[in-house]
């Protein structure tokens, strides 16, 4: 039987579908149209039937549903078994999964059981219409280059994609069909049990939702200088971001890291200070609306994607911008 259809795994927590699912449905819709095939959402959980309508609105033609009390909390074994069972019966051509902690936990197991290829953290997906192959692009291992990866013969072709890499599509009224299957796994068969959980308290770093990000890189030179980045962020109401070396040097916690191994962001404004613009950083922020780059090396690749560029010493320029912004914003406040 021919593999057919593009599938998107539906991630949900606390009664809500994760936005990455809708982003993947948006991209999945394009891929399915190019392949002239259908787009399906794969929905597993306990009492999740009602999500189906939302999934149709975001582009799904079909929802494969397994609704079972064993699926109440996400656990690798029953979720992976459920998807494998569906995939073996309905043979999709492509399965897309969000590259979240949950999605990564799941994807590696599903791909192994299906004996197929899996490409992590894709930043671009497209169909070659002549070969019908999925072109999966991600930063290449250990180089400042991107690689396009193919899974030529094994099916399905599987990829994970981080949240915010693809835009959220516009929901539209639309109808679809629900195909329901049984899980067929008893609680006793599941090798893990969640005994308890603790919600992490305290304000998190909501980089992925920030409208303004001021990010610092190795060019700041020290933890003390990194304060300059934080000061500008404070004044203009932004969130602090960082490149990997700034995180590794201990100037700022990992939660602030932008890039392939950190967060993917899409703010209105991204100010990159002392960041060279390596691909692993660019893939995390290139979708920002306006990018400002401050770097003393005029040939730094960050200038290739910047809207406004400033060549000079970040240690002199940052305080000047902070000062100017403070002055202008104070003036605005006075006028109001």
């Amino acid at each position: 039987m021919h593999a057919q259809g593009v599938w998107v795994f539906v991630e949900h927590l606390g009664g809500e579908v994760a936005p990455v699912t809708f982003e993947l449905l948006g991209k999945g819709r394009e891929l399915a149209d190019d392949l002239e095939t259908e787009l399906a959402a794969v929905l597993l959980g306990d009492g999740v039937r009602d999500f189906a309508e939302q999934l149709f609105r975001y582009g799904a033609d079909k929802v494969y549903l397994i609704d079972d009390s064993v699926l109440k909390d996400y656990r690798t074994y029953p979720y992976a078994k459920g998807i494998v069972k569906l995939a073996q019966k309905y043979t999709p051509e492509i399965i897309l999964i969000g590259a979240t902690t949950l999605g990564r936990d799941l994807a590696g197991v599903v791909a192994t059981w299906l004996n197929t290829g899996l490409t992590a953290d894709c930043t671009e997906l497209s169909i070659d219409k002549t070969t019908r192959l999925l072109h999966q692009t991600r930063p290449a291992f250990g180089g400042n280059i991107m690689a396009t990866i193919l899974c030529k013969t094994a099916r399905p072709q599987m990829a994970t994609v981080r949240p915010r890499v693809f835009p959220l599509p516009e929901p539209k009224p639309r109808i679809g069909v629900v195909v329901e299957e049984e899980l067929g796994i008893l609680e006793e068969e599941v090798p893990t049990r969640i005994i308890k959980y603790e919600e992490e308290k305290g304000p998190g770093v909501y980089l992925d939702k920030a409208e303004i990000i001021v990010a610092g890189g190795r060019g700041l030179g020290s933890k003390k200088n990194f304060r300059l980045v934080e000061e500008l962020a404070e004044v203009i109401g932004g969130v602090v971001g960082a490149s990997r070396p700034a995180v590794e040097a201990g100037w700022i916690p990992y939660a602030h890291q932008v890039g392939q191994t950190g967060q993917t962001v899409r703010p209105k404004l991204y100010i990159a200070c002392g960041i060279s613009g390596a691909v692993q950083h660019l893939v995390g922020m290139q979708m920002s609306e306006v990018i400002v780059a401050i770097n003393n090396d005029p040939s730094a690749p960050i200038f290739n994607i910047a809207t406004y560029g400033i060549v000079g010493d970040v240690l002199e320029i940052l305080p000047a911008i902070t000062e100017e912004a403070r002055r202008v914003l104070a003036g605005q406040r006075g006028v109001r």
Partner: peptide, 25 residues
Amino acid sequence: PTQVWKSFVPQAKARAKVEMLTGSP
């Protein structure tokens, strides 16, 4: 099952060319 088909230096996204700001800080 997966193979690198090609690798390339990423092209700048289709955005207007960078506008450089010059002068004193």
